[in-house]
């Protein structure tokens, strides 16, 4: 069972996306598509022919696979419902961030490959956001890692942390990081195709068919993974530390609740906030960075 917990992420991630969309629509007084819509979209895309720009090189074709498989690799590291995760030796939280970075790196390259301005724009902005997000993410993870005495994510999750002031600060910073990394309002607008505002959409603009399906799916997976990581390292309460069926069932239930909470939170933020101007991002991301920094310092000075 524990060998296949990463499949939860792969299979359920479109559902989370659907749930968020549905919740968002409801909050905005719309009916919205059903929560299974992302699955239909993915299957539809997989069954379509592809149009590929003739200026592209093999990078363009390899990228969907690299992005998808690197996200799968990341999800193998993360304990989802049990900390008895057999693949977690493959990498720790730091490696996790770098595996994500591998995906971003290739995505940014692929978007430059089609030689359009939209791609370049998306690539440039994505890397800029990554520059602002990565140090803050790393610092907030440092807080958790220092308090758990390990960077191994199962160990952090299994250490049964007590929620302390420094953790609140770090979690806040990490939530901002999640919003930025998943391309949500106020950093990016996932529903837009307006060139002035798009970041992630600009990067995948040239993709169609199964490549697009892989890219989108990877994006959903990354979103769910980040939610999971946030709970794993900052609020691991309820996660099973064994592989017995009863424990796993309990843990799964709690996990679903946690994911629902994140979905509501995301929908709430997206519905109540407006997208920020790109050059105002440093203020919010910088603020989050300071928070992450404070969390580390608080932990060091106060010891909790």
């Amino acid at each position: 069972m524990q060998y296949f917990q990463f499949l939860i992420i792969i299979i359920l991630s479109p559902l989370i996306q659907g749930t968020i969309k549905k919740l968002k629509a409801n909050m905005q007084g719309r009916v919205g598509p059903g929560i299974f819509q992302p699955y239909y979209d993915l299957i539809r895309l997989l069954k379509k022919d592809m149009v590929i720009s003739n200026v592209t090189s093999w990078i363009f074709k390899a990228t969907p696979y690299i992005v998808f498989t690197s996200t799968v690799a990341a999800s193998m590291i993360v304990p989802v419902i049990t900390t008895e995760s057999p693949f977690d030796v493959m990498g720790d939280v730091i490696a996790l961030i770098y595996i994500f970075a591998l995906g971003i790196f290739f995505m940014a390259l692929a978007s430059l490959d089609a030689a359009t301005a939209f791609g370049g724009e998306g690539s440039s902005r994505e890397m800029t956001v990554a520059i602002l997000v990565e140090p803050m993410m790393m610092l907030s993870i440092f807080t958790a890692a220092i308090s758990a005495g390990s960077t191994n994510i199962s160990r952090i999750a299994g250490s049964g942390l007590i929620f302390s002031p420094s953790h609140v600060l770090a979690l806040t910073a990490f939530l901002v990081a999640i919003i930025a990394e998943t391309g949500r309002i106020p950093v990016d607008n996932p529903d837009t195709h307006l060139e002035l505002t798009m970041i992630h959409e600009g990067m995948v603009l040239e993709y169609s068919g199964r490549y697009l399906a892989l890219m989108e799916w990877a994006h959903y997976m990354k979103q769910m993974l980040l939610f999971t990581i946030a709970f794993d390292i900052f609020f691991p309460i309820g996660i099973a530390n064994n592989v017995e069926i009863s424990g796993l069932a309990m843990s799964s239930g709690i996990y679903i609740l946690k994911m629902l909470f994140m979905a509501v939170l995301m929908a709430l933020i997206e519905s109540t906030r407006a997208k920020m101007r790109f050059f105002q991002l440093p203020s919010i991301l910088g603020g989050a960075f300071v928070m992450a920094l404070l969390s580390v310092l608080t932990y060091i000075m106060m010891g909790k």
Binding site: K47, K48, D49, M50, V51, S53, N54, T116, R210
Partner: peptide, 14 residues
């Protein structure tokens, strides 16, 4: 799932 599908080469979105 998708079976064998064609790839059409064309210009970038302009």
């Amino acid at each position: 799932i998708g079976g064998k599908r064609k790839i059409v080469y064309g210009d970038s979105w302009d």
